[in-house]
C-alpha cells in the first residue's frame, strides 16, 4: 500500500460557489444513478397520479359543477392542473425518505466528514428529485392528453405553467429534506412527508371550485400557496374553472406562485442546511 504514504491533502478550491455547484452535481448524479437502479420507485410514483386522473375524472366528473356546468369533459380539463400540482408536491416524500435513509445508513456521516460544500448533499438530492418530477410530469401530461385534456393557449404559456409546477415541486422537496433530517427512519420520513400534503392539496382549488366553499375554508384555500400554482396553471393552460375571487393570490397567481415557491426555498433550505450541519444519525 505504497500510495498511502504520499498523503497530499488537496488545496482548498478557490471558488466556493463553483465548488458548491460541482459538489451538488456529483451528489445529484449519485442520486440519479440510484433512482435508475430502483425503477419500481419510479413506476409507483407514476401509478398513483395516473390513478388519480382516472378516478377523479370518471368518478367525480359529472357531479362537479365547474363554471356553472357539470359536464365531465369540463371537469377533466379543470382537474388536470390540480393533479399536476399535487403530483409535484409528492416528491417531498421521496426527498425526505432518501435523506433519512442516508442518515440511517451512515452516508450522511461520510459526507459530513468530507471537505465538500455544506449544502451540496441536500441540493444534490433535491436536484435529482427535480429530474424525476419532470419525468413524472411528462408521462402524466401524456396520460392527461389521452383522457381528453387540452390546452387553449400558446406554447410559451404552457411551458411557463410547467415551469411553475417544477419550481413548486423543487421548493417542496426542501420541506421534505428538513423532514428527512428530523426523523429517525426512512419510513417515518415517507409518512411524515405525505400526511400534511393531504390537507394542503385538498383544502385548495385543486379538485373542487374554491369559490363554492364556505367562507372560512375558501379563505384558507385562496391563500394556500398550493392554490396559487394551480390557479396560475389553469390560467396559463386556458383551462376552465379559474377562480374569480378578489384574493390577491387568485388575481395574480403567477406572481403569487413564484413568490411562494421562492419563500419556501429560502426558508426551508436555510433550516435544512442548518440541520444538516448538526445532523447526528
Amino acid at each position: 500500500m505504497s500510495a498511502v504514504t504520499d498523503a497530499v491533502p488537496r488545496p482548498a478550491r478557490p471558488n466556493p460557489i463553483g465548488q458548491s455547484v460541482r459538489d451538488s452535481l456529483v451528489v445529484a448524479k449519485r442520486n440519479l444513478i440510484r433512482m435508475s437502479r430502483i425503477p419500481e420507485m419510479i413506476i409507483f410514483g407514476l401509478i398513483q397520479p395516473i390513478m388519480f386522473v382516472v378516478l377523479f375524472s370518471y368518478v367525480f366528473g359529472g357531479s362537479m359543477t365547474i363554471g356553472g356546468t357539470t359536464d365531465s369533459g369540463v371537469y377533466r380539463e379543470f382537474l388536470m392542473a390540480g393533479i399536476f400540482a399535487q403530483t409535484v408536491t409528492f416528491a417531498t416524500a421521496g426527498a425526505g425518505a432518501g435523506i433519512a435513509e442516508d442518515m440511517h445508513k451512515g452516508l450522511i456521516d461520510r459526507f459530513r466528514s468530507l471537505p465538500m460544500a455544506r449544502g451540496a448533499v441536500l441540493t444534490g438530492r433535491t436536484l435529482a428529485d427535480l429530474v424525476q418530477t419532470a419525468l413524472t410530469l411528462l408521462v402524466l401530461a401524456i396520460v392527461a392528453l389521452l383522457v381528453g385534456w387540452r390546452t387553449h393557449t400558446n406554447v410559451g404559456e404552457v411551458l411557463g405553467a410547467f415551469g411553475l409546477l417544477l419550481l413548486m415541486g423543487y421548493a417542496f422537496t426542501w420541506i421534505g429534506a428538513l423532514i428527512g433530517l428530523s426523523v429517525r427512519t426512512p419510513e417515518a420520513a415517507t409518512s411524515g412527508g405525505l400526511i400534511w400534503l393531504f390537507p394542503v392539496t385538498f383544502v385548495s382549488n385543486a379538485f373542487v371550485d374554491s369559490d363554492q366553499m364556505t367562507p372560512w375554508l375558501r379563505h384558507i384555500a385562496e391563500w394556500n400557496p398550493f392554490s396559487a400554482t394551480v390557479q396560475a396553471c389553469r390560467e396559463l393552460f386556458g383551462n376552465p374553472g379559474v377562480s374569480t375571487s378578489g384574493a390577491w393570490p387568485m388575481e395574480h397567481p403567477v406572481w403569487a406562485s413564484l413568490i411562494y415557491s421562492a419563500l419556501i426555498i429560502v426558508i426551508f433550505r436555510t433550516l435544512a442546511v442548518r440541520k444538516y450541519r448538526s445532523a447526528t444519525a
Binding site: 491533502p9 445508513k105 451512515g106 452516508l107 456521516d109 461520510r110
Partner: peptide, 17 residues
C-alpha cells in the same frame, strides 16, 4: 476534513452504486 479519512461502524457506502 481534507486531512482525515473516516471509516464508520456502519459500512457507509451507497448500496445501489
Amino acid at each position: 476534513r481534507r486531512s482525515i479519512g473516516l471509516s464508520g461502524q456502519f459500512a457507509a457506502v451507497d448500496e445501489y452504486l
